[in-house]
């Protein structure tokens, strides 16, 4: 997706670091191009949104067109963790550990209302974490209950756009 197609949401590009020298910019562009087009997600599906994530990976929506090539079952091999579904108190430490086990640079997509804010399980329960950003930092939020696979694709494209703004010198700094 080209930059001009994101006209509804154009603030992100203003964060691009100014005053970088020519050599570094070229290296950045090459590395970011490679990284953004080979984002491997971790299979982390807790509930309903996981089914839509599977549908996004299957024949009709075909994730792989955008470089979200293979679902990895091991956090060591994954670049992005798509938190698809509710995260409860018992699962939160596991999620944190999975996130810690992933290698840098790592990204998080919160998919669905439960991962964004607790969703329909916001009130009158006792065991639900109100949004996955209480546990790990989130790059992209995708609302919906559950979001359509198109929404997930759009969210992943936003993530790719974010990756393209990174610089090798400041890789660990949050954008």
């Amino acid at each position: 997706m080209k930059e001009k197609d994101f006209r509804d949401n154009e603030t992100l590009e203003t964060f691009k670091l100014p005053n970088r020298n020519f050599l570094l910019t070229t290296i950045d562009d090459i590395i970011d191009w490679g990284r953004s087009n080979s984002v491997w997600p971790l299979t982390f599906a807790t509930s309903c949104c996981g089914i839509e994530m599977m549908a996004a990976g299957a024949s009709r929506y075909d994730f792989a067109r955008f470089g979200i090539e293979v679902y990895r079952a091991s956090p060591r091999q994954a670049d992005v963790i798509v938190v698809a579904g509710t995260v409860v108190n018992k699962m939160a430490p596991v999620l944190k550990r999975l996130y810690d086990q992933m290698s840098e640079p790592k990204y998080v997509i919160a998919m669905g209302a439960c991962a964004v804010s607790g969703g329909p399980f916001f009130y009158n329960t006792y065991h639900v974490v109100r949004g996955v950003d209480h546990v790990i930092p989130v790059d992209v939020y995708i609302p919906g209950c559950p979001p359509r696979p198109e929404a997930l694709l759009y969210g992943v494209m936003q993530l790719q756009r974010k990756i393209k703004l990174q610089s090798v010198t400041e890789m660990n700094k949050p954008l």
Binding site: N89, K90, T125, Y126, V128
Partner: peptide, 23 residues
């Protein structure tokens, strides 16, 4: 079976108090 071993209280009892979540 569902909650942690060190969870305090029994949630389905009517006198279970959770000031944060249950309104």
């Amino acid at each position: 079976i569902f909650l942690d071993e060190n969870w305090k209280g029994f949630p389905f009892r009517k006198d279970y108090v959770d000031e944060v979540n249950i309104v």
